[in-house]
Design a protein around this nucleic acid. Structure first.
Lengths: 191, 191, 191, 191
DNA sequence: GATGAATGAGCGTTCATTCAT
DNA sequence: CATGAATGAACGCTCATTCAT
């Protein structure tokens, strides 16, 4: 007889519904019902709908790091580390399509844009692993001579695009294609 | 004393507001006001809000082709043609940031997903130029051995990511950076 | 090359549409279109929608009298005259179901109630034939001892109900049934 | 301190307003205000305006049966039973004029027509008492030789017409007139 | 704490009517 | 005169949020 994890249930319900129906199609009452709680209860855990949306994003983002960092060797050569992180990230999105679709939806919404702007201004970011890696690569002149922001675009742009098309069912990625996709990303950023 | 182009005014107002406020934040009444017309007038030109959103997309899309095709030499070597189209496209997005942001928003919404799905199924598409180019490149084995869909991702993924960051003000692209960005896209797809 | 009878066209279109779609479902623009005139034109002939609705009623009502009075012998015995008028009226409704349905709809709407109230107050009425007949019948004590209003109800209540069910397709009236229906009406009013 | 019966308040407000103003003239906001509830509250109890209109009808209809069946003797002679039900029905309409007017309005609207059509097709109906009675009367050859539908018209046509004129204030029915009216209905149907 | 009924501002859309052409 | 594009008030309905229980 566990005490029910209401916050978790609400986040799970929100993820399902926002992903399936978009932000538009998922009213609070529906989320509450799917989570098996009363409508008012959500407001005990999240100040408002907007806060719920943002917290869900943060929650999902945090779960990525343990996954992609498993087996990550800080001391491996730069290219290996890039391929490791890229491959893991793409695999993660493929394995957790709801997570991917939610993050995409979030990024392409007023929430996501404000969120990202805050992040850029704050200098800090959760993607410290990537930032560190890319800064190192830039310093060692392994990467093309671009501002960090652009390098991120070159590396993650294709990765996310491929993930999106997989999730939407426009392609079926197998292991080999995943690896070769990340190698193409590498081609884009490597000097 | 020109007769006022009401359809155009409405599209322009919709573009401004949808871009600034998102689909959420731009009620029909506001669009009408910004366009300087009565609320009901919009419905003489667009059957519904959804139709307005889709028509605006098509309208913006159609303006791209003349721009990027100017000076395009069908007979030039493959790489040149790729660079030409890519560069023009990126420049276009930089020059018309509202257009870019709207198209992004559209793509990442139920509208855009349905739209794209229709396009894929219909085989036909407005991106015939790109499709033709890539099919040729694939046939000549200039491009990596990937399905067309993935090649598109590898080429446009970074391009769009870079455009987005420019438009949001996270980087300032100059001419050289534009060219080098497209070359990086080329690196991603070329064999 | 007749001059087009715009007023008539509008009335005809209004009859068709109000009958098929109800007052709700027939906007002025649709009536105009069906009549083959501009939307504004209707207002040259009818001050407003309400006026159009009332004028259409009067127009239809007026056409009934010539039909039912054809062959009517003022000098015939009372019962014959009653049967003549009743039968003719029922036949008329069966022959012109649009007319019947419109009149019914009109009667059972705020328009019709106001209209009827005015008529009752004004003493005068278009149904002078019926009024005259019934007053005579009352005076001769052929009819039951009821106020005129009630006698009308007893006579026309069943008649209209039968017409309604025929028009809605719940019964198919043949000649014999029409005659016997009117005889039943007679049974209701006769002393 | 009773818990307020909101559903009932809404139905009552709807009855008042629909009766006074017609379906046209009674917007949801007005009904809500008259019922003393918020506009959205109505939708907790009735899925839509149309559903409210239909439920109100059913609600009113159901209240009639206990009233008219009080003191009804299944074993009494046919004529007595007819007079009992008819008289009770007419009295009910006179006592509850809002109910009568609402039902009339309902019957003479797309709602009522669809409703009645469903009833006819479904064979079943709430008017089982009447149907049973009339079927018996037809079998015993007490009633005229007509289809059931017509017999209903002959009996209820005058009854409803009289009720209507009373409710609209065109006559004042006293006890004797009520009885004699129903006897006239009987004359219309009896063989 | 948890609930879910109640709220009411706000939305997309319609349509009778007007009026410049 | 006839037109039909333009208007804008009004409608039915939704849903984030509150609060009495």
């Amino acid at each position: 007889m566990m005490k029910p994890d209401r916050r978790g249930e609400i986040l799970k319900a929100a993820l399902d519904l926002f992903t399936e129906q978009g932000f538009h199609g998922a009213p609070m009452a529906l989320i509450a019902m799917q989570a098996g709680v009363g409508a008012g209860t959500i407001y005990r855990y999240f100040e408002s709908r907007d806060v719920l949306i943002r917290e869900l994003y943060k929650d999902l983002e945090e779960r990525i790091y343990p996954y992609i960092l498993a087996g990550y060797a800080e001391t491996a050569p730069f290219r290996s580390r890039f391929l490791h992180l890229g491959t893991k990230l793409l695999r993660y999105f493929i394995e957790y399509p709801l997570c991917f679709r939610y993050m995409e939806q979030f990024h392409n919404s007023p929430y996501g844009i404000a969120f990202r702007r805050d992040k850029m201004l704050g200098k800090e970011g959760h993607c410290d692993v990537f930032r560190e890696l890319f800064e190192q690569g830039a310093a060692q002149q392994v990467l093309k001579d671009f501002p960090l922001v652009i390098l991120f675009c070159l590396a993650f742009g294709p990765l996310l695009a491929v993930a999106r098309d997989h999730v939407l069912g426009f392609v079926q990625l197998d292991d080999s294609m995943i690896d070769r996709t990340i190698e193409a990303c590498w081609d884009a950023v490597k000097r």
